[in-house]
Simulated scan of single mutants.
Amino acid sequence: MTKNVHGQALDYLGVAIVSGRYPPGTAMPPEPLLGEELGVSRTVVREAVKSLVAKGLVSTGPKVGTRVLPPQQWNWFDPDVIVWQSQAGLTREFLRDLQELRRVVEPAAVRIAAQRATLEDIAGVEDAYAGMKRAVEHGGDYVSHDLHFHQRLIRACHNRMLVQMSNALSALLRTSFEISTTRKDGPRNSLPLHREVLDAVIAREPERAERAVLVLIDGAREDIDAVLASRRPLPRLDSPARRLRAA
């Protein structure tokens, strides 16, 4: 959907900050100048700046104006921040942080899911897996089904804090999945690995489930390293998910 004026102004300023056009510690131009640059009213600029404050990108105050904060203070669980980073260019540091975060959170959640998943939870993961399989065999949107697979697995742990983290991790996970699908036969090769995770959860075998998802995560890291080494363009998350061609 096309974003409204506020959304467009927010995206413009967000990308400008993440890309380094307004470096950390510097002051952004005053509202009237930003309004002229974007072709919007001061009210729109003011609302966009408020959103940037909420996302941890800037701070405001009397006599100091609007100052860009260091990346360590940005809300990296905010989907907008992740999209802006993909537009500005995914860095090795960002991708490293993503993989390390996945390796900490997801195996623990899947281990718990193998103990707590309900029949409804398992049916949801099965449905996501079936969508991945259809995309591999007949073409289609593999990435969205892959994302649903991992989201539903984490939700199946029934830990409210981990579930909330799952919602925040969605954009981060999509980054990894988009990169993996750019590798030849990447989705086809990962399909049995996903099946092993699901079978371990169904069998109520926590240690097996944890080991299986670690294999998936480490495989994703290898995919990312290979794509980075090849210097191929990295995906942008403001575009529709990449669709597989029919086999």
Rank of each mutant, 00 (worst) to 15 (best):
N4Q: 08
H6P: 00
G7T: 01
L10I: 02
D11V: 07
G20T: 03
T26L: 06
A27I: 10
E31I: 15
P32Q: 09
G35Y: 06
G35F: 07
V40C: 14
V40L: 09
S41W: 08
S41K: 09
V44A: 11
R46C: 10
E47R: 15
E47S: 15
V49W: 10
L52V: 08
L52N: 05
K55Y: 06
G56E: 03
R67D: 02
P70Y: 05
V81F: 05
V83Y: 00
W84G: 00
F94L: 06
L95H: 03
L98C: 04
L98A: 06
L98Q: 08
I112F: 03
A113C: 14
A114S: 12
Q115C: 09
I122E: 07
A123H: 05
V125Q: 01
Y129V: 02
Y129C: 00
R134T: 11
G140V: 04
G140S: 03
D141E: 03
V143K: 03
H145I: 01
H148C: 12
R152L: 12
R152D: 12
L153K: 03
A156F: 03
C157N: 05
L162T: 02
S166C: 09
S166N: 08
L169H: 06
L172V: 10
L173N: 15
I179D: 05
T182R: 14
R183K: 15
D185W: 13
P187Q: 04
R188E: 12
R188T: 09
N189D: 13
V201I: 15
P206R: 02
E207V: 11
E207R: 07
E207W: 02
R211W: 00
V213F: 02
V215D: 13
D223C: 09
D225T: 10
S230C: 07
L234D: 04
D238V: 06
